[in-house]
């Protein structure tokens, strides 16, 4: 496991470095810039702009700005946010619990939904149930998240008044029940598109697996139908699915941007939207590193989990 982690990080480093250069260049190519917000304030004079530019180091040549950032990161210093002057790492870290809570809940729901739907859909291939599930998942994929999110707010918070429309908690200590209330809508909205995508992916894999000779053999041996489906067909199908699911999770952890923004959920995605709008370069660069680590971690977990599910992979990794 340790060796695997070292190998993965080693392999990813050159890529992260390359991407960071491109990302840095792109960020600085965006029109606007961190001082854009100051421009429309009538109190801010040109002298103030020049002073703030110097203070943020924005008056230096771009390559120098990049190298300063890079050397900082190597030393473990991710820089300071242009917006509130606090350390970037701290700003990212404080958002992690909220995002893990949301993504964890959302993806668990998605998994709970996607598994049975995929099994039913593959089992009843080209029959009514399959068509209905595929149509629903196509709709789930096609509906933009912000639309589903606003619709959910409208129905469950405004019309029915069952759930709070947004936020992560009331300010008074509301206990676990209260906290869960706030989680329900964003988690479901996040789950919807994932259920759609995952059930389709898993269905396709299952359809292939169900046609394999070992499944036929298991059936011929008289195995109970659901045991055959779960143990002989679903388990091998989960191996490729797991990689996809974990990578999705990694991407979401580095920003369930739309869901978090609409639901005012104080996670990484909301921070990203805010940082992008204010062109907070250090925080945005921090996101790049965070995302890279999340993807690497997801890959390692996927490798380990694959080994657990598939003895052949385990042998190869050992």
């Amino acid at each position: 496991m340790g060796a695997l982690l070292v190998r993965r990080v080693g392999a990813a480093l050159p890529l992260v470095l390359l991407v960071s250069v491109a990302y840095f260049a792109l960020l600085h190519a965006l029109p606007g810039g961190p001082l854009a917000a100051y421009l429309s304030s009538p109190n801010v004079r040109p002298e103030d702009l020049a002073r703030l530019e110097r203070a943020l180091g924005l008056d230096r040549p771009l390559p120098e700005q990049y190298l300063r950032w890079l050397f900082g990161v190597v030393r473990g210093d991710w820089g300071y946010s242009f917006v509130d002057g606090r350390p970037v790492f701290a700003r990212l870290l404080e958002r992690v619990p909220a995002t893990l809570e949301l993504v964890g809940a959302g993806l668990s729901l998605a998994l709970l939904g996607a598994l049975p739907l995929a099994v039913v859909s593959a089992e009843r291939r080209d029959r009514t149930a399959d068509h209905a599930i595929r149509a629903a998942s196509a709709a789930g994929l096609a509906l933009p998240v912000f639309w589903t999110a606003l619709l959910a707010q409208l129905v469950f918070a405004i019309w029915l008044g069952w759930l709070p429309s947004s936020g992560r908690s009331g300010f008074a200590s509301t206990g676990l029940g209260g906290r869960l209330q706030y989680l329900v809508l964003p988690a479901f909205v996040l789950a919807i598109s994932q259920v759609a995508a995952w059930s389709r992916y898993l269905r396709a894999t299952l359809v292939g697996t169900l046609a394999e000779s070992w499944v036929t053999a298991a059936r011929a041996r008289g195995g109970a139908p659901w045991r055959v489906r779960l143990r002989h067909a679903l388990r091998p199908s989960l191996v490729p699915f797991l990689t996809v699911a974990l990578l999705d999770a990694a991407l979401l952890v580095s920003g369930a941007v739309v869901t978090e923004s609409v639901f005012a959920w104080p996670g990484l995605g909301a921070l990203f939207t805010d940082a992008l709008a204010r062109r907070d370069y250090p925080v945005l660069m921090g996101f790049l590193l965070f995302g890279a680590f999340a993807v690497i971690a997801a890959n390692v977990i996927a490798d380990v989990a694959q080994g657990w599910l598939d003895p052949r992979v385990r042998e190869r990794l050992a």
Partner: peptide, 20 residues
């Protein structure tokens, strides 16, 4: 006085509608 940060304008109005 509690200032809740709600960047999305539609959500802000929705919270008003919901009495939050």
């Amino acid at each position: 006085i509690l200032f809740k940060f709600i960047p999305n304008a539609v959500t802000r109005v929705n919270q008003l509608l919901a009495g939050e």
